[in-house]
Design a protein around this nucleic acid. Sequence first.
DNA 1: TATGAATGAGACTTCATTCAT
DNA 2: AATGAATGAAGTCTCATTCAT
Lengths: 219, 219, 219, 219
Amino acid sequence: MPKISEARKETRRQQILDAALICFSRDGFHTTTTADIVRESGVSQGTLYLYFATKEDIVVALADERHQGEAMINALAQGEQDPIRGLLALIELYGEGLTDPRHIDMRRVGIQGWGEALRNERIRTSAVEGLATVRAAIARLIERGQHTGQIRVEIDAIAVSRTLVATFQGLVLQIAWGEVLDLRACGQVVLGLIRDSLLTPEGRASFEAALATSPVHAD
Amino acid sequence: MPKISEARKETRRQQILDAALICFSRDGFHTTTTADIVRESGVSQGTLYLYFATKEDIVVALADERHQGEAMINALAQGEQDPIRGLLALIELYGEGLTDPRHIDMRRVGIQGWGEALRNERIRTSAVEGLATVRAAIARLIERGQHTGQIRVEIDAIAVSRTLVATFQGLVLQIAWGEVLDLRACGQVVLGLIRDSLLTPEGRASFEAALATSPVHAD
Amino acid sequence: MPKISEARKETRRQQILDAALICFSRDGFHTTTTADIVRESGVSQGTLYLYFATKEDIVVALADERHQGEAMINALAQGEQDPIRGLLALIELYGEGLTDPRHIDMRRVGIQGWGEALRNERIRTSAVEGLATVRAAIARLIERGQHTGQIRVEIDAIAVSRTLVATFQGLVLQIAWGEVLDLRACGQVVLGLIRDSLLTPEGRASFEAALATSPVHAD
Amino acid sequence: MPKISEARKETRRQQILDAALICFSRDGFHTTTTADIVRESGVSQGTLYLYFATKEDIVVALADERHQGEAMINALAQGEQDPIRGLLALIELYGEGLTDPRHIDMRRVGIQGWGEALRNERIRTSAVEGLATVRAAIARLIERGQHTGQIRVEIDAIAVSRTLVATFQGLVLQIAWGEVLDLRACGQVVLGLIRDSLLTPEGRASFEAALATSPVHAD
DNA sequence: TATGAATGAGACTTCATTCAT
DNA sequence: AATGAATGAAGTCTCATTCAT
């Protein structure tokens, strides 16, 4: 029987992760010391190691946390009946996530994680799974669109999904660097790709209809 | 009159940078110790600091070196008379650079640099300048294409260039992670965007002609 | 509530300072390594830096510690009702301090500090304050003696105090160098200065009386 | 037969010592690097070691150089026929040396040397010999005064000479620390000691006569 | 469960000295 | 005789982790 309730334990854990996110965003994984996290979180040095075995575990835990958010977003997109609508919903959601100030630390830490993932098995696994989840969601939407005749059958769903995700990743990076970019205009470029390159004439009709009822406008 | 020729000095410097690139690619900036670089390069601890004042200076020097390569590639692209041909040349060159095994360490180190750039002024400057160089080259090609009537005038050249660069960045990342992706197919997606979304009917003629004489095939 | 009592903490700190004093006396500030202090004190490298932020801080702390001892000695001297007695008490105390084997390391380190004080603001401040404290005590005794008519009014109290302190400093140095000197005889020279050059006839009476009840004999 | 003339060699050597003096005065022995001396002197790193085997040798050479100056001063004092005049001449000369701006670096380096002398045999030897030279000169003057009946026979010549030198040392220190002190007044204290405590009535007559023809005035 | 003092391995950097030219 | 690039030992300080309380 635990002396401390499961809920209280989770609160503590989250308290540490929140602090770590702030530190990592500000100073990077390696420059951040456990002492920094301790200071930021208000727990003691010893307590930190009661919840995480190593500093690396904190990094991994944060990577996994990001992942969860992505899974949620996708579920949302798959819920759409019309695959074109689903695609647009996904783009819109990710587009919003790109600039939402509440996620700025997450995005910054995520970019650091890209580098870590090159050499850290656990982090790469986490990153690649996140990538795969989104990619699969997009690919499935495209395949559904091909079945419904809205998307051209000769389109390589995998390649498109990879490319779209790549574009998002690059935009995340540029925004995090403080580049001033017209995200709306970039979104139009992506929508242009979909409309002009992917869709069949029937698909284009759904596309226009979807845009009319969506905050993302085509021109 | 220097006892050691300027050339010899440059060789030494490069020797250190080469070693550092290998180490950084393998272990990351922070995990790599100066002792590692010393071991890899064959120079002594003291000599290392004869050529670079701090470890950070080595990182920055590598960032700047990458940058130079990019400037060269762009000059190449601007040489093309036909803007569409120039655009395709750029895409082809970067596409090749994406998988060229000689640059694998550079790409891995570059990705680490993305994270550093978030917090290190000198590295961000270097990274952002590299980005700007490529972006500007693409934007100029597009604008030239708009003047020649090959590219639709309502296209936002800046947004397209940013988006294209973003896509490249994302693909660099995915490839570095060891993701197995059909780069040819992804290239087709990008070419599709250009052909279907950017070009005028006249532009499309140049496009087909250019592809016919290029290693990147559309079908 | 601290896990470790304030007293225990102070003990640790003193333990380090004691070790440092021994090392500095033996090897000098610059030749002494933190490893030496660690070895001598029995604490670990890490612990050393838990109590002192830098090696220089240890040096400064030792300088300040010396200072405190001096303040105490002076309070003692000011307690004397008769200024002549006070003066003699001071001289006697300092004379004893000159050869007391318990303070040998302090004196040696103090001399090193004289050199450091030339270039180190914090150490100079500490040294100059110590000097000023003693000087002021002597000057005040002299002024009191002038008011009571025991010391000639045309005497420059400040100059005398400075000169007396200077003499002490020089003797400290010579003794530390291992010079074999007859400290009793040197004391007589100083007493001679006071008796013959400073005192009024009335003062001389107190002087003789004071000597008769003091361990320093004029014979 | 040397390739380089003895004179030119000596010039080089002095050039290095001059630079070292400046560096040591500014930064201290230990903080000064051979690179600093090289920079200040204009010779090369290699050349430095052509003239001095080790950095310590430079320090010792400077200590010995100081020493020579002292020997000269004393010869001057011993030239005086009248021992009282000689004593006053010595005091005057040293008093001037105390503030002469041309010797400021020498005094600062000398003070550093006091600390080094505690642990470095060669430097202590040099320092102690310098001290002994001056002390002996003063003692001899006093003994001569005792023979001529100008100085009281019960005076301990050794103790007085030690005490006088000590006073000078202390004043050197205080001045080097930037203490604002009335050197004239301090000189009067020392003169007072001599006149009131050391001299016989006959001696006092010579004393007054000497002062009248000297820049150091008693009243 | 919580604390925070203690640890010690190891990182970066400096610098006196050497030696090939 | 003169140079200055090269060396590598050693120094200061940091920090992830442990453990007695």
